[in-house]
Amino acid sequence: MANRIDERLAALAAGRRKGLMTHVVVGYPSLASTSALIVAMDEAGADFIELQIPFSDPLADGPTIQSACEAAIERGARVRDAFTIAAESSARVQAPLLFMAYANTVYRYGTEAFCRDAAAAGISGLIVPDLPAEAARHEGYLDACRRHGLHNIVTLAPTSTVGRMAANATVASGFAYCMSRRGVTGAQLGLAPDVQAYLQRARQHLTVPMAVGFGISDRARMEQVLPYCDIATVGSALIDRLAGLEPGDVARQADTTRAFMRTLTPALA
């Protein structure tokens, strides 16, 4: 069976269109919200949707996503909910779904079982920010992804040396996730001043398409990076818009998400 990420990347290339990846934290603002937000994002034009499994100590995340993870765990979100929601949602939406999880979540679940169950739930790729290539190999994670037809999305950063870019390029599959700046996720901090030179440098090493994330909070910032990459990723900015809403008011959360995405999608044309 073809991987949905490949299909979507092929469609983007054929249409000479740029892609948009959006982000939900499973169980935030509530467990009932997650499926509705995934459907809303799909309808509003998301090309890829990341489902972040909440973790108590998210090393790569800034205050917005960290608070969302804490709230989700406090409101009872469990790791198994991510699989249930993925299974329900993947059948209902066009956009490929990815899990974003921290290494401990994968390890405690069992690396092999995690990949098997993710694939069975209709997940197409995994982003595990604290499993750099060497650790990923050590944990048998790269093989498990391959066995279950999941793309292992590698991360590149502005600090990545030529050697690191080359090493990551050899294990990259699907697309690569390029951090726009040093630091953690968050909408407020903006992009690095030299982001374009770095993205051009990354492009030389990669054979897979490039997504850019961190600090992409509006259409203007999308337009800044899209000429140098294939996919813009918006995460914290979406979650920031949910923070003021009632956790139980799913309809309003979906409307807010759709409305915000309408301001972003014109940048893709």
Binding site: L59, A60, A103, P129, D130, L131, P132, E134, A135, H138, V154, T155, L156, A157, P158, T159, S160, T161, R164, N168, M179, R182, G183
Partner: peptide, 12 residues
């Protein structure tokens, strides 16, 4: 042990 950190920290 090992080194389980985001790629951005590996060079440092």
């Amino acid at each position: 042990g090992g080194r389980y950190v985001p790629e951005v920290l590996i060079p440092a």
